[in-house]
Design a protein around this nucleic acid. Sequence first.
DNA 1: AGAGTGCTTGACGTTAACGTAAATGTAACG
DNA 2: CGTTACATTTACGTTAACGTCAAGCACTCT
Lengths: 130, 130
Amino acid sequence: MTNDLMTIRQMCDAFDVTPRTLRFYEAKELLFPQRDGTRRLFTRHDRARLKLILRGKRFGFSLEDIRQILDLYDRDGSNHAQTIRTYELAQHRLAQMEAQRAELDVAITELKAELDAGGAMIAGLRRAAE
Amino acid sequence: MTNDLMTIRQMCDAFDVTPRTLRFYEAKELLFPQRDGTRRLFTRHDRARLKLILRGKRFGFSLEDIRQILDLYDRDGSNHAQTIRTYELAQHRLAQMEAQRAELDVAITELKAELDAGGAMIAGLRRAAE
DNA sequence: AGAGTGCTTGACGTTAACGTAAATGTAACG
DNA sequence: CGTTACATTTACGTTAACGTCAAGCACTCT
């Protein structure tokens, strides 16, 4: 069984992040490692939170979004209103992502058309400028 | 027929940008308006370039990318090697956009799964942390 | 004790594309 | 000539998520 307390380096190796990142997350109040004198010791709790953080980032949430979600979660995991709030946050983010994808689709289609048509951006751009 | 020379405000109204933006583009050498004393006067040429700039932005090109493309275009619109170069830039950008869309698709799918499964991000995040 | 290794806390740097504010100019109107 | 309405330059501010030193402590090995 993996030790309950991990040094910053062990954390970095385990999660593929830099020490700077972990300290940054602590400064932003996303993590709260214990101290052994001056050194940080990360608990299971920190590891769980870090997983959530990295997962949230993959979803495109900002660190601030993530912090809010984690705070709600820690304050009272069973509070219905807060769960709803988080749900709404996720829904909102999902809508953003889908809108972004739609824009991207349009841009990709247009750019492909340029390439297919003129054989070069320039030609496409010139036509667009008429 | 619309006058050949336009003030900064006319440009802003016509293209829905701010004066700051036009001055910024000039500073970045994307536009080269004439001067009437101290005031800028934008020519048809500037308008054509601005259209290209805004179009490039929709494609997700950086201003620096756009500047390079415009420079090649102005220097010699018929130079084959330069046309090829621009073509490659566009291809590269297209590849980036498609990669980005792929990532977005994965994230959207995952996030949807979370929402469908647990009814809340928190639940999803908790399962992920186990 | 000296060397090496790893950890710590500052604190400034990076990137893009402008926003915003301050001080000044100047053209036209009445 | 005074006011109004835009224009100009200069230059610092913004945002996110860290990167990159710099200087120094803490422990261990020899």
